[in-house]
Design a protein around this nucleic acid. Structure first.
Lengths: 233, 233
DNA sequence: TAAAAAAGTAAGTGATCACTCACTTACATT
DNA sequence: AATGTAAGTGAGTGATCACTTACTTTTTTA
């Protein structure tokens, strides 16, 4: 969340007429945003038509353009505030609170996964829009990479290195590998449950999350395979 | 790859006029397919226009419709054969060959990741099209889930259960959790490298894959955390 | 080699797209 | 109560969309 981020947002805001302080939102504006989230996430940005959004929001099509200037302006009005929030203290605090507790790592990762999975699933439509659209709009992808991925990585790697010193995490693994592994296990769960349910995701959530933390910390190797392993113990 | 799959393909083939045996492909047909892969993967299905594809393929727009009937027919002509192949002996054999070797698990997973990551990266454009479009086209998603995800899961779970008996994999973890963990680590690498490069993916591939297998098998916990763990040894 | 079939295309088609314009309505300010 | 401003809209606009038709060229077949 450096200065470039704010500058970049201001550029986008000027170009697409975002009002960054959204205190004064009309009833109809709220309906438009809700409809846009629904239809963008269901059809994708290009597949969604402004007339369909207007119809769902029960407003005239012209009203959309009055407030958001263009279809892309409408998209960014949904996406930019959401992205901004992610690296924000408000969203990041629960993570820090969890990570900085002096408890067994397993409980800690369970809480972390529980917390972030809830957050993603509650905002699944927006997340889907952001992820898909970042595949096609380079500026969005760069913003996500530079300001969200980097911020998350920073928080994670700080903790990882501290844990290494305390002997709670293996010292022989590169920090970026550990950070990516933590994320991979979580993303894998989300993909399995939200994109291909029923196949890779049969269990209860609480229990599943327990297994995730278990695998992350102790791996899947059985006794036969562990014999030869250079255990740091 | 059961009977329903073949029936489903036949239905789609009839509706969209796919010729499932693509022995007789014209020079121009190849150019159209190449152009379609390029433009679909860059702009998405809805964002791609048939005129742009025709232009890139250096053919008249009508030629596309002569061969593929509709835009969606063109998409499915790319996507269905690719999906069909995945659960096919030709594509699956290398996996079985790797998994059924009597070698240390770590070497085995390294080879598995190496092999599959190469396959995905070589076909990255097609993979991107299939993944994104399956988010928006329910029939495509169901086909992927029913026939690819299930097939992969079957192969994986058979091996996992065998390994459990041999003591090479922990017996206390549910099979689906192990299968998903193996996939998650691989998918995490692919996402990091192909969607957000430069941030989570700084190392050499060979080395990275080594770390992936290491984490998968032995976890990230340090000596302090391992003390209390119910090690199956 | 003549006829049939397939490949290929130029020039359209109506439908739908994002977006604008001219205008009315609602509301806050003084 | 008058006035300025923002909210909201019906009826368009040209551009572009996927797709068709009527036709020519190339290849295959008998």
């Amino acid at each position: 969340m450096d200065k470039n981020w704010d500058e970049w947002i201001q550029l986008i805001a000027d170009e697409y007429g975002l009002n960054l302080k959204k205190d004064k939102e009309t009833e109809k504006q709220k309906r438009i945003l809700e409809a846009a989230i629904h239809i963008f996430s269901e059809k994708g940005f290009e597949g969604a038509s402004t007339s369909a959004i207007a119809q769902r929001a029960q407003v005239a099509e012209a009203t959309i353009f009055k407030h958001y200037r263009s279809k892309k302006g409408l998209l960014l009005h949904l996406v930019i505030p959401a992205i901004s929030k992610v690296a924000t203290p408000y969203i990041l605090r629960p993570v820090l609170k969890i990570l900085d507790q002096d408890r067994p790592m397993k409980e800690l990762f369970q809480d972390l996964y529980e917390n972030r999975i809830q957050l993603v699933e509650k905002n699944w439509k927006k997340v889907k829009i952001i992820v898909v659209e970042s595949l096609f709009q380079p500026e969005l992808r760069e913003a996500l990479q530079e300001h969200v991925a980097r911020a998350i990585y920073k928080v994670m790697s700080e903790r990882v290195e501290q844990w290494k010193e305390e002997g709670r995490i293996r010292e022989d693994l590169p920090t970026h590998v550990i950070a990516r592994s933590i994320l991979s296990i979580g993303v894998g769960y989300l993909l399995a449950h939200n994109v291909f349910p029923d196949v890779l995701a049969p269990g209860e959530r609480k229990e599943e999350i327990g297994w995730m933390a278990e695998v992350l910390l102790y791996g899947i190797a059985g006794p036969k395979e562990k014999e030869g392993h250079n255990n740091p113990l």
